[in-house]
Nucleic acid binder design. Structure first.
Lengths: 393, 393
DNA sequence: TCCATTATCCTCGTCGTACGAGCATAAGGT
DNA sequence: ACCTTATGCTCGTACGACGAGGATAATGGA
């Protein structure tokens, strides 16, 4: 609340332009008339705005295919010389990246497996790609977002049990340059993607949960994830929902993490903890559902998942819940157990209309899409637009 | 994101005025020069704004005591004929109310015990007070906020184990009138009060937890509580942190609620569940700390409290945690147990600088203050200011 | 072929908030 | 008295947005 009024020149100037670009991403391929209608722009203002944005290489207008009577309009899209962002998703076994313009569409999606999981090696590889993209796009590259399977704290990768990393400084990736690096937890960014362009579009408050190794997620309100004070919010896997006697690699005990992934399945099946819990879970899910031990193990995990989600609905009160990664097949493996555990975990007044639990739509690409969204949010912010307009065109 | 640009006349007009009134509440008794400085207003704009707000009976300016050299300035305060709100706190054994002007100061704080806890009886009593306040203030009464010890869902009191109420329609309280009624959970509103004017001032993200019967709270970001889709967020007491064999009146099992209030103390002490868990907990807390059974019971509860808070910090990543109601004395009864349980519940990377856990400052008045804040937020919103200005002055 | 209809875009005069420079005011200090 | 300091007021300017009216570019029927 110490915020100044700040309706001053530089910021006012870009307020509406920022909204236009945000709208553009949500409605790719829409016409200019639709823009004016949705944003309640007068036609005069629409003319001025699109003209200004075109002059700044932020927007391209191409004639729209005729839709019937009336004067033809134009479809809006990213300018071929406009700003771009680099989205990177750093995962357990591989990492991928893509470039996106202000229309939000991912281009040149590329992936490669880790040759070594040593932090220094991986970061050098990523740095090489960043440099290559910078060489190719020059000043057009305005932001880099990095989704990473681990906990982010004040811009550092604080800890990742999956990668076996601890407190890795990510700023080295862009050291020497001026392009901002925006790191984020992969599950958080996948939740962002579901909220903006996925299964939770239209929900004001949405909870996304994603199981890979452990469970993470994001609570979004109006498409903005709740990031917390240091960007470390959403570590749902490290709530004491589980058995207090089980120590978690995170340092705490009884974490929910240990009840819902491959490690839990192995425990229920009486086999040693797998080195690759995600692959092990996939194997168990692919097994014949006739095997009673497998069914019991999957039911136990689905029940733990449902019960925890019930508790989280009590906490967050979302409109809906989306399931990413292994969460969707785990529920599908024992839907009745999941449902009753979910309902039983809800406070009574939620049971009349429990928030629907739906599968995510972005699949494996959620975190990458979320990273692009995060970066583009930065690029289309009012201050970033002011900077872009001050640059060379 | 479907929001129109809306920099149109009516809304633009009141944007800055709304910020001035928000500032006024945070800095009671401050001078006009301080306003201009804090909000980075030019002196011309400060003149225009204060003049406009004075003309609308929204602001009063009185000469400030001389502070040394220079032209004397004025202190800003609520206009004696300005808008007021009614804040009500409906609790287990009693209910209280107060009136507040745009400066946020509570006036005429009044309380009375329930003669009957029957919903109809209580609501009629409250309705009588509302009507009396409306008679006294007329069109000056612009909003009524009701803090209630129970779960709010889409404006209804969905359930309150404490009061023994279920699905009570609160709109009857203002039926026939035009003054909006804003209901809220008491712990949520107490958290709002701590974030704005209490122990969490300055924290961007703050978690408030309040123990009375069970535990509730609020997560606030920049002074705004996360309310969820239906206003039911913050039911931290109904997360499955506890013993799965214990059924909770909320309908779920193993709720945290049952581990941290008077019911938990009774269980640990081997006595029957008390009719008044809050009073029972107070008694136990007041007992001689020499009694080993009492100490063990308090330690168990303090440990459950700390462990749960650790899990919630993992979820929300707050700057700090504030403790209201019985939470503060419960921690104080076994600080070491609390601290180690808290730290043990944190993910390792949080342990370097764990969010400080501090006692709330509003005491028993938190919910009432929070209700006033909620109502005043409404009154000083841009749309409400536009309405007020259209009224008779 | 021509013209009414429809849908969209553009032009231009106006409004209102905010800016900012300069001046006015009201104290304390010398 | 006069300077210094701090603050408030006046007024011309800038600029985003509004809104009415006209221009434009298609379809479709007479």
């Amino acid at each position: 609340m110490a915020s100044p009024v700040r309706r001053r020149a530089q910021e006012t100037r870009w307020h509406t332009a920022s909204q236009v670009l945000a709208w553009l991403r949500l409605h790719p391929g829409s016409t200019r008339a639709a823009l004016a209608h949705d944003l309640q722009l007068t036609s005069g203002l629409a003319t001025e705005l699109t003209g200004r944005l075109r002059a700044l290489s932020l927007l391209a207008e191409t004639p729209a295919p005729p839709q019937g009577r009336g004067r033809p309009t134009t479809v809006l899209g990213a300018h071929p010389g406009g700003p771009v962002v680099l989205a990177i998703d750093l995962r357990m076994a591989d990492w991928r990246y893509a470039v996106a313009g202000v229309d939000g569409e991912l281009r040149d999606v590329t992936g490669s497996r880790h040759v070594s999981r040593d932090p220094a090696t991986v970061l050098v590889e990523i740095r090489r790609v960043i440099d290559a993209v910078r060489d190719r796009y020059g000043h057009r590259l305005r932001a880099i977002a990095l989704a990473v399977v681990g906990s982010i704290h004040d811009g550092r990768l604080a800890q990742s049990a999956t990668l076996g990393w601890r407190d890795v400084d990510l700023t080295a990736l862009t050291a020497g340059g001026t392009v901002p690096l925006l790191p984020g937890n992969d599950a958080t960014l996948a939740g962002l993607a579901e909220a903006r362009t996925g299964a939770a579009v239209g929900a004001r408050a949405a909870l996304h949960l994603m199981v890979e190794v452990g469970i993470g997620g994001a609570f979004t309100v109006d498409g903005q994830p709740s990031t917390g004070a240091h960007g470390a919010a959403g570590e749902y896997g490290h709530q004491p929902y589980g058995n207090r006697s089980l120590p978690c690699p995170c340092g705490a005990r009884g974490c929910w993490d240990l009840e819902i992934d491959g490690r839990a399945l192995a425990r229920h099946l009486g086999v040693p903890a797998p080195a690759d819990p995600r692959g092990f879970a996939r194997q168990v899910l692919d097994r014949s559902p006739r095997d009673p031990a497998t069914r019991r193990a999957l039911a136990a995990v689905a029940g733990a998942l449902g019960a925890g989600i019930g508790g989280l609905v009590n906490v967050h009160d979302p409109d809906m819940v989306t399931l990413g990664g292994l969460a969707a097949p785990l529920r599908a493996a024992a839907p009745d157990v999941f449902d009753s555990a979910y309902t039983d975990g809800l406070m009574a007044f939620h049971r009349g209309q429990p928030p629907p639990v739906v599968d995510a739509v972005h699949g494996d690409d959620g975190a990458l899409h979320g990273a692009a969204i995060l970066a583009l949010d930065h690029v289309t912010s009012e201050t970033a637009l002011a900077e872009w307009s001050a640059g060379p065109h």
